[in-house]
Amino acid sequence: MLRRLLSLTRPLYWFYERRLLKEVKGGPMPRHLGLILDGNRRYAKALGLSPTKGHEFGVHKAYEVLEWCLEMGIKTVTVWVFSTDNFRRPPEEVEELMRLFVREAERMAEDHRILEHQVQVRVIGRREGFSEEVLRALERLEERTRQHQGMVLNIAMGYGGREEIVDAVKRLLLEAEEKGLGPGQVAASLTPEEIAKRLYTAGLPDPDFIIRTSGEIRLSGFLLWQSAYSEFYFADVLWPEFRKIDFLRALRSYQARERRFGR
């Protein structure tokens, strides 16, 4: 009986998704979408699988969402895949993640979606702690797509929002030292714009919309400086379960707020 009911609702579900897609396509899109991919480990645990399997499911979902972003014409996307805190996880899990990063970086460098849509991939975050093999794979991916003129895809790895701000201030101070400027001169000329120019995402628009999955209602340090005026959407599904209809609902929420405030 349950299976019969489910089969009867599928056409209605499909029709609703198509109608929602048409509605959302007619509205404003985020210039820069931030994605916190949360819930891979909990998803795997619920299925009785290892955390690594959850991360693999998460990778497949990330490719799906990338396709949706391309379909919607979103110009800049930042996905947070590995934080500075993630190095504290069990060594065997971190090791499996490193292997996954190498495999997917090499795959992305040849992926037809990346090449056909001219997606430029940038890796942002601190690179300390990653093996030479991981760094080489990431650098090859960046170099392979450096001249692309389509969507900019930032992959946040070894990333922390506080660390990003610290690194920006350090860079500013080192540049000032090279110019022979003293602390007083640096302080006199210090502005938010000067720090913003030295963030990992310098030269790109700040994210106007951030989505986090898994039901957690917090940013956990994601793009702390850049998200001061962002809209947020916290989906209560785990990342591997994030469906296109969830994505469209999130975009519709963004569009409703944009219209409400006349932006």
Rank of each mutant, 00 (worst) to 15 (best):
A235Q: 12
L49Y: 14
R212E: 13
V134C: 15
E194T: 01
L37T: 09
P90S: 12
A187E: 14
M151E: 06
L238Y: 11
P51L: 05
A228H: 04
E116F: 11
A168N: 08
L204C: 02
R122I: 00
L49P: 11
L21S: 15
D111C: 12
I114F: 15
S189E: 11
V123P: 15
T201H: 03
G150I: 01
G158Y: 07
G125Q: 10
L172E: 02
E64K: 06
Y159P: 06
G58L: 02
F234N: 09
W68N: 05
E67F: 04
V79T: 14
L190E: 03
R19V: 01
P30S: 05
T191L: 05
G48A: 13
R122Y: 05
K61P: 05
V121R: 15
L199Y: 00
I124Q: 04
E164F: 00
W225V: 01
V81D: 10
F261E: 03
A228C: 06
P240W: 01
L49A: 15
Y229V: 00
A137W: 07
K179P: 04
P51Q: 10
S50W: 08
A188N: 08
G184K: 09
P11Q: 06
E133T: 13
L47E: 09
T52N: 12
H60Y: 07
R127Y: 07
S220D: 11
F261I: 01
K22V: 02
Y229S: 07
V166A: 11
E67T: 04
E164W: 00
L35H: 05
D167T: 07
V77Q: 12
E23C: 05
P30C: 03
F87N: 09
G161N: 03
H55M: 05
I36C: 13
R140I: 02
A156H: 14
T84E: 14
D206V: 00
A168F: 01
